Computed example of a mutant assay.
Amino acid sequence: MITEHALLPVISGLEEDFEEAFDQARLIIASMPGFVSLSLSRSIETPSTYLLLVKWDSLEDHTVGFRGSAQYQQWRELLHRFYEPFPNVEHYELVNSDAR
């Protein structure tokens, strides 16, 4: 399993609209093969910045499956207009974890 990590810099003043659009977009990504889970968090210090974490079964489920799909075009139409600058996306493999 891998984790997609993206800091989403939303244009100031459009946060509420972004959150509404994301509520629709999350249904798109959640329907994709290899999707495991996602979380969207809003920065306390910089309220126009969001942290998106998406868990995928494999890197290819995201980079080939999702990004190469027609559903990704719907995702883009809903969300990409909110970003300035465009987010940097990285993928991570779990090395260690702990929980209470």
Rank of each mutant, 00 (worst) to 15 (best):
R26T: 09
G65P: 14
M32N: 04
Q24N: 14
P87V: 00
S41R: 15
P33Y: 11
R67G: 05
T63I: 09
Q71A: 14
E19K: 12
L51D: 12
A30Y: 13
F86Q: 01
R42M: 04
Y92Q: 07
S58A: 02
M32E: 09
S58K: 03
S12R: 00
Y50N: 13
Q73V: 02
V36R: 09
D23H: 13
Q71S: 14
E16P: 13
P85C: 04
G65W: 11
A21H: 06
P9S: 03
L52C: 11
F66C: 05
A25C: 11
L94V: 05
F22D: 15
F82Y: 12
I44S: 05
D61R: 11
S48E: 04
Y72S: 03
R42Q: 11
H80G: 02
S41Y: 10
G13C: 02
M32Q: 15
E16W: 08
Y50E: 13
R67K: 10
E84A: 02
F86I: 02
D98E: 05
F35I: 15
I11A: 03
R100F: 04
H62Y: 12
E45K: 06
D61G: 10
T3Y: 08
S37K: 07
Y92S: 03
S43L: 01
A6F: 02
K55L: 05
G68I: 00
T3R: 14
G68T: 02
E19P: 11
A25I: 09
R81S: 13
Y72R: 02
N88A: 04
F35S: 14
P87R: 01
T3M: 13
S31H: 08
H62V: 07
A6G: 07
H62T: 10
A25P: 15
L79N: 05
G34P: 15
L40P: 14
V10D: 05
P47T: 00
Q24G: 08
F18T: 06
L78W: 12
L40M: 14
M1Y: 03
Y72K: 01
V89F: 14
G13D: 05
A99H: 01
T63K: 10
F82C: 10
P9H: 02
D57M: 05
Y72F: 07
Y92I: 00
R42N: 05
I2D: 10
I2K: 11
L40S: 15
W75I: 06
L78M: 13
A70F: 08
N96E: 02
R26Y: 09
T63S: 14
